[in-house]
Nucleic acid binder design. Structure first.
Lengths: 296, 296
DNA sequence: GCATAATATTCGTTAAAGGCGAACGTTTGG
DNA sequence: CCAAACGTTCGCCTTTAACGAATATTATGC
């Protein structure tokens, strides 16, 4: 009995995911006739059909499902091998970091600080949406994703979530917005507010706070991008509910003032990685103890 | 950039484990020159050496270690795929059971009872030493191993241990050995005893019991094979310390008598499996809730 | 220290596997 | 009922793998 042919298995994997010989053949840059015969050989080797030919469509059989599951593991492991060895090649080490585009730049800077001085390390920083970044993480194009909105891990997305930092949240604005002698509830009801957008985890807790104080807020803007929030606060558009770290420079220079500290609210920052056999060694300098999140 | 060649990777795996091209070539039934060139191509594809050529010996480089780790996972997954599909082939299902040669036959029978009536199921029963059986389990030649001495699981042996049954232990012998009106301590000190061998987990607890009673036992035999223990008890060699299930027939017929029940002792029986993506479905009929044992 | 056995590497040749494209068969949808 | 979209089959060609002999290297015994 010949050994399992992994070449065939690879073709099978693509066909199974695409659902069509034709599309799979395009993706693999070979003729579909070649695919057809190679898939057939795999079926012969395994002694059972992997696809049910229903008309011109291909449907996985139960055996096909089993085979695909194993194939996915096999080729994911192979890709991980390539990525791991890739990263080791060359003298200069690289760490590829993805950051949510809406995340505070100062926080990103703090996270990366231990590596920034080093001439032997290259930091590749890419920002994007959560979906983009997690896809890139799964595809091993990124080593870590920074976010203030930790994902749920599950079997398909076996993420590790590391809590990096927790920042208090304050009510911050230009000096002319920050009138003396007002209570928190008075400030929140009288001044126009810059709130985190509803897509941000913090927003839920802000709403809860406003409700508990019986405040009907006057919302000037809802923003998910912290850099934009900073600009709007500097422009004096309103009082922003943000962690002071976001506008640290402006606070230092007196351009902005923290009117109140919202002690019941905090913003947490997380670094998200995936299970790697040989994780990027640079990560250990930035993240302490890897804690597993989610189920098995 | 061409994709990773799994054919090359397979060769590499064997060479890395054997440590020699020559031996690997024998195992693979190909010329060593072929191996040499294929390994070289893999190294070229990966862009780094996998072996350090120290004289005529091959030593894994760090990259080689990484590659071997991944290769082991990959081919273990492939083997599992083959084994899983193998088992599904044909109408008759088969369950391959390994049992410690020294284990009570009645217990084995009880465990397998749900399958024994079924004409559509074939039970393959193989007995052997613990080492043999666990190797076969790891190599996917067995679906489950029955034992009264559960193994420790670790990263290299990711076993699941299922507690199947717990049997009380009694003091059992022929009627002429079972004199009326004696205390347990008196029986244990006066009659010759048949004890489980020191290799059996139960023995430690038997010794503890004897010590706590202040008994200096008169040991007739130490036996690890329950079938042999049964024969010796029937021969009237002495009082046996065994679970009654081992000699159930003889107890029913009056050929043997249970003189005392050792309430502080029990023998537990376990079914050991390994993590499988698609476990043999017959197992679910025999084992309730799979519980993970040992560490990760 | 030198011969020898054991091992890895190189190279030219041969065998096997993979791939191509055209022709054919089948299903689906207008 | 025809055309478009697929999957399958088949003969031919290309690429890859394997072989075996020659070569190089290094431990080991005498």
């Amino acid at each position: 009995m010949p050994a399992l042919n992994y070449h065939h298995l690879r073709y099978f994997q693509v066909v199974a995911h695409e659902g069509h010989l034709t599309r799979a053949a395009e993706q693999l840059n070979i003729a579909q006739s070649a695919l057809s015969s190679q898939i057939r050989r795999l079926e012969e080797r395994l002694g059972q059909s992997l696809f049910e030919r229903r008309g011109r469509a291909l449907h996985l059989t139960e055996a096909g499902r089993i085979a695909l599951d194993h194939a996915d593991t096999i080729f994911a492991t192979g890709d991980e091998l390539l990525a791991t060895l890739q990263q080791r090649t060359g003298e200069r080490q690289a760490l590829r970091v993805g950051a949510l585009a809406t995340l505070s730049r100062n926080f990103q800077l703090r996270f990366l600080r231990p590596l920034l001085g080093r001439s032997d390390v290259e930091v590749v920083l890419r920002s994007g949406s959560a979906a983009e970044l997690y896809d890139a993480l799964m595809g091993l194009q990124l080593d870590v994703v920074l976010t203030n909105d930790p994902p749920r891990a599950d079997a398909l997305r076996p993420f590790h979530v590391h809590r990096i930092d927790e920042q208090p949240v304050g009510l911050i604005g230009t000096p002319d917005h920050v009138v003396d002698g007002l209570s928190l509830a008075e400030r929140l009801s009288t001044a126009p507010l810059l709130l985190p957008a509803r897509s941000v985890g913090l927003r839920t807790r802000v709403d809860a706070l406003l409700a508990s104080l019986g405040v009907a807020p006057q919302i000037a803007a809802e923003v998910d991008d912290m850099a934009m929030m900073r600009l709007l606060a500097r422009e004096g558009v309103g009082l922003a509910i943000i962690p002071p770290i976001v506008v640290r420079d402006e606070l230092d220079s007196g351009q902005l003032i923290e009117a109140d500290r919202l002690t019941t609210l905090t913003e947490t920052f997380h670094a998200v990685t995936i299970e790697r056999r040989y994780p990027n060694p640079l990560l250990s300098l930035l993240i302490d103890a890897p804690k597993r999140s989610g189920h098995d």
